[in-house]
Design a protein around this nucleic acid. Sequence first.
DNA 1: CCATTGTAGACAAACGTTTGTTTCAATGTC
DNA 2: GACATTGAAACAAACGTTTGTCTACAATGG
Lengths: 358, 358
Amino acid sequence: MAMRDANDHPAKSPGHRPRGVSLKDLARHLNLSPSTISFVLNDTPGRSIPEPTRERIRAAAAEFNYKPNMIARSLLGKPMRSIGILLPVLGEGYHSQVLSGIGDLLMEEGYFYFTVHHRHKQNLITEYPALLQARGVDGIIAIDTKLVDPLPLPTVLVAGHTTLPDITNVVLNHELAARLALQHLYDLGHRKIVFMKGQTVSTDTELRWAATMRVASDLGLAMDRRLTIQLDKDSTSPEISYPGIHALLEARQKFTAILCFNDIAAMGSIRALHDSGLNVPRDVSIIGFDDIQSASYQVPSLTTIRQPLKLMGSTAAAALLRRLAHESLPSLIELEPELIVRESTAPLRHEPARKQTH
Amino acid sequence: MAMRDANDHPAKSPGHRPRGVSLKDLARHLNLSPSTISFVLNDTPGRSIPEPTRERIRAAAAEFNYKPNMIARSLLGKPMRSIGILLPVLGEGYHSQVLSGIGDLLMEEGYFYFTVHHRHKQNLITEYPALLQARGVDGIIAIDTKLVDPLPLPTVLVAGHTTLPDITNVVLNHELAARLALQHLYDLGHRKIVFMKGQTVSTDTELRWAATMRVASDLGLAMDRRLTIQLDKDSTSPEISYPGIHALLEARQKFTAILCFNDIAAMGSIRALHDSGLNVPRDVSIIGFDDIQSASYQVPSLTTIRQPLKLMGSTAAAALLRRLAHESLPSLIELEPELIVRESTAPLRHEPARKQTH
DNA sequence: CCATTGTAGACAAACGTTTGTTTCAATGTC
DNA sequence: GACATTGAAACAAACGTTTGTCTACAATGG
């Protein structure tokens, strides 16, 4: 049962990294060569090993909980079965949900993954892929990340919108998203709508804005520059939308609805309105974007455009695995948003609106 | 500038894993031996290499963006500078915040990490460490995970409460947490308090419950079995507390405050009360636990016991790195909670409470 | 002038796998 | 009985590093 010889200290020479049982250990124990064991454990075709020997080997492998060292294996060019995920920031919300979708699928398929956050810093974005490669990842998934150079490894982007060759993008149908949101507000009677533009670091910002503009003009909705909020703080906390809403109220702008860039901003907006004595949805309708987990448990719960975030994650992961298996892939995979109507939107009241805000 | 010879296809034989520039490539280019380059790049002491040569090597390394292959290096027993993180589930809330604290510190120190979720399944918990080891991690951090066997690698636990030898636990001072929460409710005049016990899978459940019992008895608060909610669904969504609250209302129990197991449950509780026509904090005071990011942006915002989650994460990570550097560590690191008073708690009203709930 | 020392490197082994090739005995064929 | 075939396994090279040892040459000292 004792695997190692008596004089074979578990922690060896200077570089004493704890290591599991090796093929060699097993070989010594079975009086076989490492290669024979490798053949059996990998079911390598074209090698004749009699069944009794195979049994003996498999039994010993199970007994000593032998796991092949992926590191040695990958040095030979075999896949390491681990991948790298690049994202702007850890924590709640959008990235977290996508990550969760990726993680579920990868673990199911027996892949492990590194998570790497770069806070949109360009030097980190360019540096990390090589460091991941040095750790043996087979491929990379980048979420909401602006890639400039092509990566040295198979890559799939979530919300990436790049035209780099050989890269698959998993994106939302922003045109439909904008249509669902604006049509909903329009049908409720809203005409004075505040538009919120995302932070410039976010890769979705431009596409979504353009789509929103197009749909607004289709519906004959006026685009009033003064009813536009530009998010700037690179934060994942609801305070991002606080200053913008506050400025609007200060300037005594009239509006009856806000189309928020995401649910976090929607939460902040509700809070800001609430703090100024305005009620959602009585005085102002709010529509969010993403449908993060807490959106349905807010008071009021958020009407929002659901992005299938987990699905986007798992789709991206599945795409990368297919690419690793040398299947060919489309360069664009578009997923459909969905309007989720909850409490934060309501029909326009026709009584003369609020007057005093503070 | 072209690094490889003409006949040296970038994608070689069958096992064509894309690989970066190797020491050998560099050696060929510089007409030096790999070892010499290794000496220079690692500043190995006791080797005499003249400055001009050193410069030449460093220049070439920079030019070709050479990064040492950690995999080959780790095969020799050197640290791989990556670690494995074990946690129950991805997504929002507690784990996510701790993870964020760990991730920040690790990346700052140039470490990479695998994230592995096991959904409290015992077979996965026992299996994953060996698979992480096979991928070369130097150590493991486990969050809210019930370990049974000692791991083959240096380990730090967050909210682990194990007495396994050689393991450092990073935990909250639950005694103080319970005192802060109950004293707050007590001072507001509440005596009929609902206690909520966490899911049995959560490692914090027992300690927190025991501490709560002790403090309650210190304050002379009655423990009414009928005013106890046992969470059971293993979920991170607010619905976990919905059934419990609902049952309480059905049974027409009288209570004026709820001490929730975490903020998620608090959100669900507020929602459940709200749906039954009860207002928080007017009719019932709610106190949460954790202070997750969205706690302050709820309406009403949550009074809660803040766990320094990010700090717990970074503390655990720092501890692991110290252990990897062979420094000795205490087996317990206790961090202090903090009472955050917001809108969800209020003084007890003395008018006869609500009567009809539906 | 020859022995000693020091300098600037090259060389080789090792880590744990995979895999193409070789070995050796037993069996089968003429 | 000589020879080819096959079965079962060992052997060896390779992957990209690190590191202990070795070599070639120049400079120094007496």
